[in-house]
Amino acid sequence: MTSPFEPHDVTWSRVSPRLVTAMLVPATISLGIPMVVGVVLAVTISPWFWLLAGVPAVFLLWSILLIPRQVRAIGYAERDDDLLIRKGVMFRSMVVVPYGRMQYVDVEAGPLDRKLGLAKVQLHTASVGTDAQIPGLPPDEAARLRDRLASRGEARLAGL
């Protein structure tokens, strides 16, 4: 059976593998702290606290296994008239954004992203339902994509 997420005439671009680090660091911090606290309490107070340590540990392990696959699943493709973005491993989704529908383009980079040399490009249409963001792009590629999208959007601009 052909997957609807593999249109035949499309070559997908992948995002930088450094995005794995950028996603793992916050996950490790937010799950690691309760895990460490749980371990300390389990050793000093009561073995019941191993439960507190175990739950975040399971989630952390799950994230470590899943995040590289998620990052590999993110893809985008520039076609003549629209931009395709797909993502997800278990819950897959794909969005088609016509250039003429773009209202504005955001480029964002947090401190960790900047350290790793990454940026996120997000497209906005007049619909709040459009979830079109490409995380983990190298800054040069993000800037190129932004300019290209802006110029293509201008060329094909239509009213609402």
């Binding site: 609807p4 278990m90 989704s93 969005v95 339902g129």
Partner: peptide
Amino acid sequence: QSLGLSQGPWQRRLGVASFQVH
């Protein structure tokens, strides 16, 4: 505005997908 396609694990097994218009 834009078009979306989504598919969960069960839907993939059945070979179906949901389509949205934004």
